[in-house]
Amino acid sequence: MSQQHPIIAVTGSSGAGTTTTSLAFRKIFQQLQIKAASLEGDSFHRYTRPEMDMAIRKAKDLGRHISYFGPEANDFSLLEQAFIEYGRNGTGKTRKYLHIYDEAIPYNQVPGTFTPWEPMQHPTDMLFYEGLHGAVVTDQYDVAQHVDLLVGVVPIVNLEWIQKLVRDINERGHSREAVMDSVVRSMEDYITYITPQFSRTHINFQRVPTIDTSNPFAAKAIPSLDESFVVIHFQGVEHIDYPYLLAMLQGSFISHINTLVVPGGKMGLAMELIMAPLVKRLAEGRSAG
């Protein structure tokens, strides 16, 4: 961790709500006049999409599994070094993984490839990371220890599967069978590397549908925010003004110690109200350092 160069990491699967979280943080940065460097977790994939497809086939032939959740497909060492470098010097490099044609066309590339590494903007006030592994810890690497504010965004698992199915079928052109195979193939890495992160985060936002998702693989659409509640759990975070949040977020309630529940449609607003004081505190600590 670094007082002069703080790092904020939002960790969660693609489609879990990290986009809503990113928008909330960007709004906060703008309001507080904070210049934040940006780092995408997908930048640390080891393989392009064709390379990953080949790695999956080779692993399957050997009776093994490989997924985007685990270390075989991601460079945890490079991610940890990126956090260390920013924490020390406020510098680093960034690139993009281009998921779809709309992202790839401006770079004159094809989907499933990377843009070249290039220097981050400099100087900046703090680093904002969004991706799968902002709080990952293994026997060799401890990414979580370098982060000043860790935020988890995770739906219940049935909802996560629905979001993956609908996104990968409708936006990425995969078959239902291919997506279900991916879910099965990823399960060991998900349990080993993804879920433990949410015990290390300072705040978790967990979306819970209020409609039947008993069979996620038969779903045709993703439950909307208005068809959900968001369970917000705080751990190791001081000075959370619960009465203020309850007053500002209509329909919210306290369900457990350090746990606030808000209507799904209030998720973005809840994030802004909760995060703004925490980001401001990081910025003030930087100025005082």
Rank of each mutant, 00 (worst) to 15 (best):
Q109V: 02
Q109C: 02
Q109N: 06
V110C: 11
V110E: 15
P111Q: 07
G112E: 05
F114G: 08
F114H: 09
P116T: 12
E118H: 09
P119Q: 08
P119S: 14
P119I: 07
M120C: 08
H122S: 15
P123F: 14
T124L: 06
M126R: 10
M126Y: 05
L127F: 01
F128C: 09
F128W: 13
Y129D: 07
E130T: 13
E130S: 11
L132A: 06
H133N: 04
H133L: 05
G134D: 12
V136T: 07
V137F: 02
D139K: 01
D139S: 00
Q140N: 11
V143Q: 02
V143Y: 02
Q145K: 10
Q145D: 04
H146V: 03
V147G: 01
D148E: 08
L149R: 11
L149Q: 06
L150F: 04
V151N: 06
G152D: 03
V154M: 14
V154K: 09
P155Q: 03
P155D: 03
I156P: 04
V157S: 09
L159S: 04
L159F: 03
W161A: 11
I162A: 01
Q163D: 09
K164D: 02
L165V: 03
V166Y: 04
R167V: 06
R167S: 10
D168K: 00
N170A: 10
N170V: 05
N170D: 14
E171V: 13
R172Y: 07
G173L: 04
R176V: 14
V179M: 04
M180C: 13
M180F: 08
S182E: 12
S182W: 02
V184Y: 13
R185G: 07
S186M: 13
S186R: 11
M187R: 11
E188C: 15
E188P: 04
E188K: 15
Y190E: 08
I191V: 14
I191R: 15
I191Y: 10
I191G: 10
I191D: 04
Y193T: 05
I194Y: 06
T195R: 14
T195Q: 08
T201S: 14
